[in-house]
Amino acid sequence: MDWSQGQPLRVGDMFLGLYQPSPETTGFWEGVKRHELLLKVCNSCGKLHHPRRILCSGCGESGLGWTRSSGKGKVYAFSEIHRSAGVFSKSTPYVVGIAELEEGVHLFSRFMARNNADVQIDRPVDVDFQVLEQGFLLPVFKLREE
């Protein structure tokens, strides 16, 4: 598939909306298919970024490539959702939040735990890949059980 043309707007089994995935993020979703968590890396200064980045905020260069994350991190912030909409309604309560990867990049995600109450700020988490309610394969974060 020639992603450089921005078409089709579909990666694997995933169609996410009007504009996405777009050429600058398709590498991320191809990685997800291989169960790899990829981050953007600046080819010029080495700074790591959210997979969305087009321009390096460190040096201003636009040549960003991909690098694999260890998938290890911790809970930075979270919220247990008790009221949701559409296909997510039947899954409440579920926990979303921001994971802080050990590489320093933060990603919004779903936190998976045997008990939602165990999800707390700074608890260690590891990436996992699961199909969520909309049928998309997504990187999620599992609480590292002690």
């Binding site: 995935p21 919004f108 309610e133 997504l138």
Partner: peptide
């Protein structure tokens, strides 16, 4: 964000 937040609910 429809791509990186929406699909998580």
């Amino acid at each position: 964000d429809l791509q990186f937040e929406g699909p998580y609910g």
